[in-house]
Structures are given as C-alpha cells and as structure tokens.
Design a protein around this nucleic acid. Structure first.
Lengths: 193, 193
DNA sequence: GGGTAAAACATGCAGACTGTATGTATCTAG
DNA sequence: CTAGATACATACAGTCTGCATGTTTTACCC
C-alpha cells in the first residue's frame, strides 16, 4: 500500500484518539461506569490497542487528566495580567479557575474522581504541576509584598486550593457563579494583613 | 436450640457486623479494592447475608459513611462550648474537625471516596446532615452577631467546608497539624468584618 | 403447641469486566 | 530485501457483582 504511516505519528494518533474517546465518556459517565470495551468501541479500535499504549485503565485516566489540567492552567495563566499586585492576581486567577471548571463534568473528573482513582497524593501532584503551582507562587509573592500575614505556605496553599475547588464544585451543584465568586473573594481578601 | 434470637436484634447485629468489617477494610484498602467476598469473610458470613440486608455494595458503603459522619459530628459538638461567640465556636469546631479526621483512612473514606462512589451531591447531603449543618449555623450566627460581612451563605458554607476538608487532607498528607490549623484559623479570622 | 407464613441467611449461576498471552500485520533498519 | 521490532487484534483466565433459588430459623395465629 502507498499509505505508509510512520510509527511515531501512528502512536500519537492512537493515543490521542483513545484519550479523546475516554475523556468524553469519563465526563459523561465517570471513570468507574466507563468500561474499556466502551472506550475502544467509541474510538473504533480494539482493546489490544489500548493495552498496548497504556499499562492499564488508570494510566489512560492519568493521561486524560494531565491534558485536562494543562488546559485549565492555560486559562488561568491567560487571565492574570502581569502588572497587577499579587493579591489581585489571585483574585483574577480565582475567577478564571471557576470559569475554566464550568465545563460539564470537569469538576467530577478532576476534583472528585481523580483523587479517588489515583490516590489523593498523586492527584495532588498533578495539580501541583499546574494550577496549584500558580496559587503557591501567588501566595508567596503576596507575602513577600507584605500583603498577607505570616502563615505556613504549604498549609495555606492546600487550604486555599481546596477552597477554590469547593467554589467550583458548588457552581457545578447549582450555586450561582456570582455567589461562589463572592465567597472565594471574601476568603482571599480576608488574608490581607 | 435454646438460643432463640429475635429477628430485629439478629438484623441489627448482622448489619452492624457487616458494617464493622466493611469499615475496617474500606479504611485500609479503599472502596474499590475491597470486594464483597472479603467483607463477608471478615464478618464470618456469606454474601447472601450482605445482599439480604443491603441493596448493593454502595448501600453498605452509605451505611458505613453515615455512622462515620455521625461520630465526627459528635466530636465537633462536644468541642464547642456554648458560651463562646459564634466565630470562636467556629475556631473550636475547626480544630475538633481536624482532630476527628486524623483517624487513619478517614479522610480518604469520607472526603475522597464518598463523593466518587455516591456522587458529589449525595455525599454533600450526608455532610449537610452532620458537620456541615453546624458550620452553616455557625456562619449564620456569626453574621447575625455582626462578626462577618454580608456574603451569600450557601456559597460561603461550601467554600469553607471545602477549606476544612483541605486542611484535614493536608494533615493526612503529612503537613503538620499545627500548620494546617494555623492556616484554617487565618481564613476564619479573615472573615471578621 | 403445631403449622403456616415470613424473614434470615446460604448456595449456585449468569453476565461483565480487567489484564494478559498469543497471534498477525505493519513498519524500521541494515 | 529481509530480519526484527513495533503496532495492533484475538482469545483466554480469573474475579467480581447482583440475582435467583434453596434451606433454615423466627414470628404469628388458632
């Protein structure tokens, strides 16, 4: 045949297709209720392909999750104007985070299922590499600028990150986005010293 | 045999034994990695008994979870002295919550797996009936007393509840309990108007 | 207190899923 | 062009969940 496809592009296409199908199904049904036969059927391939490219079902989930986290982090970075004060940057970032999380099913995927499927610490590590890193740097900058008091940074990052997640989940549960944003901003502003 | 046992006590004993075994295994291994054969083996009965008393595996999990949430709520209520101001009561409650959550595996069970297994809203409803109710009332009282500003209560409750959870999870992940408490108290104190 | 209905439990079975082992086609490199 | 590696398909073993069907124990009524 004349349609020779190099192995590397073949691989990346297959991995992409599997992750696309998996992402859609995970967003709709969640991880547990999505079976590998369903995923490969939606992608038009067989389970052999899946298990050739991913060690197991959770490895596929991990891949999906990392792409998702990157997209969220991108939207946050895009929302932060460089000339603002650290605390105002946090405020902007909070709004962008809530907005980015309003993609249907995304809160369940990233905030509910990821820790359950991968374990709390591995899931936190993914967040650590993306949105949470921005949060921690923001807090550090705010403290160096004297905008917030002397609170242990690791703990404060964890607590605030969870507060952001709570706001996003509340929105997904029907709380008006405006109210959730008001609440998060009240918490951030409260840190001001 | 002379050891006739009335059905109601038989039922409550069996349900209790199953929930005890399940709780231990869930705390150790998590929900997904705990099989019903394991649970009934630890309880010294068969799967028939389990499926006679519980509709399915998640119903058993629900029972375990409700008992756990009650115990946590009890410890919080016990820590709040009635004569304190609303905001100080919140501070005491926060400490008690973090302490109550330090039972090994409890954060994973209640904060990680419960939303994943039961869904975010049903899990929140359980919390709503226990610890979260106290939080909301505390916030309402603090606002009526003029201690905190005018922030939408539902949203603020959700955000703060998540912040508490984040503190408890951070402790389970190795953050010093003292640091986590400091961070949570900083957030609570920040609400003071 | 005997006997029937109902509840409590045990056993056996069907369907589905995950992960792996093995087979075949396609690509790569010398 | 050919040997070997890589990509994928097919087939299989083991395990799990939920249900259906048995057996035993308790409840109730005459």
């Amino acid at each position: 045949m004349s349609d020779r496809i190099p192995n590397d592009v073949r691989t990346s296409r297959m991995r992409g297709a599997l992750m696309d199908s998996a992402r859609n199904l995970f967003l709709e049904q969640g991880f547990a209720k999505t079976s590998t036969p369903q995923i490969v059927k939606a992608a038009g391939v067989t389970r052999g392909a899946l298990y050739h490219h991913f060690a197991d079902k959770t490895a596929l989930f991990l891949g999906v999750l990392e792409r998702e986290a990157e997209n969220v982090a991108l939207r946050i970075d895009g929302a932060i104007r460089p000339e603002t004060t650290p605390l105002d940057a946090l405020r902007d970032g909070a709004g962008a985070y809530i907005a980015a999380m309003s993609v249907p099913g995304r809160t369940r995927l990233m905030l509910i299922e990821a820790p359950a499927v991968l374990g709390a610490e591995p899931a936190a590590r993914i967040d650590e590499d993306h949105a949470r890193a921005a949060l921690r740097e923001g807090l550090e900058a705010a403290r160096k600028a004297g905008q917030i008091g002397d609170v242990p940074l690791d703990a404060l990052t964890a607590v605030l990150s969870a507060a952001f997640d709570g706001a996003a989940l509340a929105v997904a549960d029907g709380v008006p986005k405006k109210d959730a944003t008001t609440a998060i901003l009240a918490v951030i502003d409260g840190l001001r010293s």
